[in-house]
Design a protein around this nucleic acid. Structure first.
Length: 321
DNA sequence: AACTACAGCAACCGCGTGGGC
DNA sequence: AGCCCACGCGGTTGCTGTAGT
């Protein structure tokens, strides 16, 4: 007997998500929390399969997701981690809590792979170690060590923050928004930003639809209000970002959230600071390379470990170049 | 201006795995 | 112990925008 389809193929919508669907999904998750994805399409009336809902949430709507260009630090981190972990994007993403595994995977496939290939070609040409065309081996190593030092410091800071922090006790391992605990509205502020952004693009790209959009959106909101599934108090009179903010009453939270979510770049890769990292991220304790990395990052006196990691990282990275 | 090629990214697909029964 | 379900992950696909001709 073959594997049963994850969802009924008939009547299941595919393709890009509309802002309306996003609203419905976010609204539902706000109320019930992520999880039990199987029930989401049924309970929301979304004509999407559960997988699609989960993916949409984890890759786009989930709070704390940073979109847009990757910073140099992020780029380097990805390269290092990829060298260490291979294509274990979820593990890599757990060290870049504001990025999704899908994002990192895409970035690797579209940018970094090419970049490295290019550099490798350059290396072949000059048959030597060359990470950057403008960087000597010594410079590279120094820079890498500086990065590592920064990461280490950031991790320590993050950990000390964690201990004294008054942040809600969300740990990477329990960030799955258990159904029993109510979701704080603030956690969804960035989701509304995402939706708003999506809607803006959508409307920009579909001027013909912009008229009906607000109507249908209003309808869906009204429907939700009627079923009591939306926190909206019917304040959405337009499909502007402000409209969404008012829909979810997020205005007052946005600044706070962006402060708490937009942690310092240098702290991004610490699992301990991954307040909003993917709920589904595996427990890193079980991952030997990451444990080594963490251990090494944490252990100031572990000079040997540092050497190991540098050797490991550089060794494998060098192979790439 | 029209067409083509390419890049970037969102979403899908299929497999693996863990937990509950 | 074995089955089933739900979920997570990595690879792949396909759509859309843009640069080049």
């Amino acid at each position: 007997m073959g594997r049963p389809p994850c969802c009924d193929k008939i009547g299941v919508k595919k393709g890009p998500w509309t802002p309306e669907e996003d609203i419905i999904l976010v609204s539902y998750i706000q109320e019930h929390g992520p999880g039990n994805w199987r029930a989401v399409p049924t309970n929301t009336g979304l004509l999407r399969c559960s997988k699609s809902c989960r993916l949409r949430w984890t890759n786009y709507l989930r709070p704390g997701i940073k979109r847009g260009n990757f910073t140099d630090d992020e780029e380097k981190m990805i390269i290092h981690l990829q060298a260490l972990l291979g294509n274990r994007w979820a593990a890599i993403a757990s060290y870049l809590p504001e990025r999704t595994d899908n994002d990192i995977k895409n970035y690797w496939n579209t940018h970094l792979k090419k970049k490295l290939k290019k550099l490798q070609g350059h290396d072949d040409h000059c048959h030597g170690f060359s990470v950057s065309q403008s960087m000597s081996k010594g410079q590279w190593e120094r820079r890498l060590q500086t990065d590592i030092q920064t990461a280490k410091q950031a991790l320590c800071e993050a950990l000390s923050l964690d201990k004294s922090s008054n942040l809600p006790d969300i740990k990477p391992s329990d960030a799955s928004f258990p159904h029993t605990s109510p979701i704080q509205s603030s956690s969804y502020a960035l989701s509304t930003e995402n939706i708003a952004r999506s809607l803006e693009n959508w409307m920009k790209n579909s001027p013909k639809l912009s008229q009906t959009c607000s109507e249908t959106t209003q309808n869906s909101i009204n429907n939700q209000a009627a079923t009591g599934s939306s926190p909206s108090e019917g304040t959405l009179s337009s499909t502007t970002p402000e409209g969404f903010d008012s829909l979810f009453s997020f205005n007052s939270y946005n600044s706070d959230v962006s402060q708490s979510v937009s942690v310092d770049e240098t702290t991004n890769f610490t699992p301990e600071t991954s307040l909003f990292q993917d709920e589904s991220k595996p427990n890193l304790d079980t991952q030997v390379p990451l444990t080594l990395l963490e251990k090494w990052l944490l252990d100031d006196g572990a000079a040997q470990g540092q050497d190991d990691l540098i050797n490991m990282s550089l060794g494998e990275t060098i192979e790439l170049f």
